[in-house]
Write a protein that binds this DNA or RNA. Structure first.
Lengths: 213, 213
DNA sequence: CAGATAAGTTGACGCTTCGTCACGTTCCTT
DNA sequence: AAGGAACGTGACGAAGCGTCAACTTATCTG
């Protein structure tokens, strides 16, 4: 009864939850643990431990810690993409296209407590690996919408690739700053970003005192 | 002579290189291996193996894979910061401030083969953890320069925090796209970014055909 | 409804990677 | 030349990973 007992698996598999419930259980535990320990410091076992499941079960749902994280990101992409697309589809001017895009993004980011608390915990998470198929599809959609708007004469004929890059860069960076301020003012952020794209720096709203974080 | 021989360390420490040389040896090996295997897939031992050093020696120089990576980033920050600061210091108009910032950044990124080949290999690396003290200091410096320019009346009184976020976001995103194009045209990227900040979308250079990647 | 098959769960195991540290070598000082 | 500081070395213990044989529950089939 020392080391070599080799009592081998004599498991006792209950089936008290559906597949979808287990998946959600893992995702939720991951959010919690990422928020507590930080992405880098959490192990797959940490996530499993925050769950009534066994170690091996995790791998029926995800292949790695990274994949759970990507699933969290995909959830976000899946929720925000339709809203963004809809907003842009009904735009009848550049300004509507731009402000609609930023407003939708900022409002989503500020509202999704469950996902973004885990993210605020790690300064860098918004920047880590935004390259799941879902997210790339979201970027592609922005690109397509942009090209369509150009074709319709809404925009002048410009470098859609760079414009998209600029929009994405501004959206993510400002979102990050916004979340770190005392109260996330999505309207303020939207005004700023929209003004920048509409008229450049000289069109930006001026302020009196420094209300920055 | 089976397992328990416990021949224990009877090392043979040569000292054929200086401390600084060893550090550079490791950094260079890291660049190579990151470029070959990708950041996520390389182990510390992979880096060591690309080096004439022993496993333990690595830890005399860095504490982890991440720290090597951050050192690579710090090298970049250290090289580019003086140039950026100088460029901004001699700006006498908003346009010079903005175009100088973007041009310097894009030109550096396009020129630093050694570091950026490793980076191009991983789509996401530009986005990973930009939070070493060096890099944060660089951001802080941009922020200070910006506030000073505002105080001097170069800029209107605006939200320096958001403006900085916008500059950083546009710089990194466009740099990434630029590097992926057939030939990295830093002047084109600079023109685009500057025009955006100076006059918004309607000031952007128009193009005839789609010369995008 | 018995028997067969599929689907899902379990935890111990083997393996990889990590960071350390006792020991050996080289450099530097006096 | 003596001795201490600095540095290099590789084997070791610990930690985490992903797998898989054994087992349980669900579904299907006639």
């Amino acid at each position: 009864m020392d080391l070599n007992t080799t009592t081998r698996a004599r498991a006792a598999g209950k089936r008290e939850r559906t597949k979808q419930q287990n998946r959600q259980l893992i995702l939720q535990a991951a959010r919690q643990v990422f928020a507590d320990l930080g992405y880098g410091a959490t192990t797959v076992r940490d996530i499993v431990r925050a769950t009534p499941l066994a170690a091996g079960t995790f791998y029926n749902y995800f292949n790695s810690k990274e994949e759970v994280f990507q699933a969290m990101q995909d959830e976000i992409a899946l929720r925000i993409r339709p809203r963004l697309h809809e907003e842009r589809a009904k735009a009848t001017s550049i300004e509507e296209f731009i402000s609609g895009t930023f407003r939708t993004f900022f409002e989503y980011v500020a509202s999704d407590e469950a996902n973004f608390h885990a993210i605020r915990r790690n300064t860098d998470t918004l920047r880590v690996r935004m390259d799941t198929p879902e997210i790339l599809a979201g970027f592609q959609e922005l690109r397509t919408d942009l090209e369509e708007a150009i074709a319709n004469g809404l925009f002048p004929s410009l470098d859609a690739d760079y414009l998209m890059a600029a929009i994405v860069g501004v959206a993510f960076e400002i979102a990050e700053r916004m979340l770190r301020r005392a109260r996330a003012d999505t309207e303020d952020a939207t005004r700023f970003a929209t003004a920048l794209f509409m008229g450049g720096i000289k069109a930006l709203p001026t302020i009196s005192s420094g209300d920055v974080a």
